[in-house]
Design a protein around this nucleic acid. Structure first.
Lengths: 166, 166
DNA sequence: TGCTTATCCGAATGTGATTCGGTTTTCTCA
DNA sequence: TGAGAAAACCGAATCACATTCGGATAAGCA
């Protein structure tokens, strides 16, 4: 685990551009993005640094906002939310868009993005059943300024993860 | 923090439907979905149980697959990925859909869902710039069996989180 | 060249995760 | 209805790992 002096020197020379993510940072980020319960001992083996050195780096990455936090990943189905749907809402006014943004408070709403186009908002919704999804849709459709709502119900999810450092 | 005997009894009686999530489970899940670095001491205060009791519950929730893991949340922009885009790919064949699923290996791909419709696949892509996004798009468009690709570039992201236990 | 900052890291300390073992409650079955 | 098994709770103890400390080295800048 402890590299020879020659390797240590090489690592240090490569490393020193401040504020830039090097390949070791990215490796650490990739490992934590996949499983944040890894110990520093484990990470240190993965990147050939000591545990406190890895700890220092993670501290920096958190300080700099590259790591925003850690969260538990929950199974939507086991929570009773079996219907994943993407809504593309076309609005005719800024005030409608703003009303849509208030849906961020709803437990079934997972993502809310304004997207390029004439007043479009994309909403990722995970509902318990078709009935509650329909209620949700109707609520959105009855907002003044909502021109159309296209919904795409997910049949299978093959991948769902956050940004990758690679 | 230690509830009186009467409260303890009440909690126990409410609790005992096995395999079903009760309100304490959901509270714990909500807290961990938001910040998985909370200590068991902190969680125990939130739900009025002891730390080992909370630990037992979390162990069960993990065993049962409700909690699938914990991950670090990374800032896409700080990773150099500033362009979030949703692609809606319309395919005319199952083999095209299957080719699309191989894009799950790409670092810029965050989500891959088949969605209801005639051979539709929704892909969430976080690219470094317009150039690499365009390359990605072209690659998809040149797949045999891909009928059309609609892309929605996110302008602002107001919410991005996983399934909620509420 | 000298000073400051950043990075690394072995050893030590601090914190919280985890286990242990006993008690209580709930559920199931005869 | 009672007995047994399983589930849930939890105080105390132990264990594991996070975190700090302080020194050394390297890099950057004037």
């Amino acid at each position: 685990m402890a590299p020879s002096d020659k390797e240590t020197d090489a690592i240090r020379q490569i490393r020193h551009h401040p504020a830039e993510l090097d390949s070791i940072d990215r490796k650490i980020l990739g490992a934590l993005a996949e499983d944040a319960s890894r110990s520093y001992a484990e990470l240190s083996k993965m990147v050939n640094l000591s545990a406190p050195a890895v700890h220092d780096r993670v501290k920096r990455l958190k300080r700099d906002g590259v790591i925003k936090g850690t969260v538990a990943i929950l199974d939507g189905c086991k929570l009773g939310r079996t219907l994943l749907t993407f809504l593309l809402v076309d609005t005719s006014s800024y005030s409608a868009t703003r009303k849509l943004l208030t849906f961020a408070e709803r437990p079934e709403v997972e993502e809310l993005h304004t997207v390029a186009g004439d007043g479009c908002v994309l909403i990722k919704v995970r509902a318990a059943n078709t009935e509650s999804l329909e209620d949700f849709l109707m609520e959105i459709q009855s907002l003044e300024g909502v021109r159309s709502v296209r919904s795409y119900i997910a049949l299978s999810t093959f991948l769902e993860r956050g940004p990758s450092p690679d």
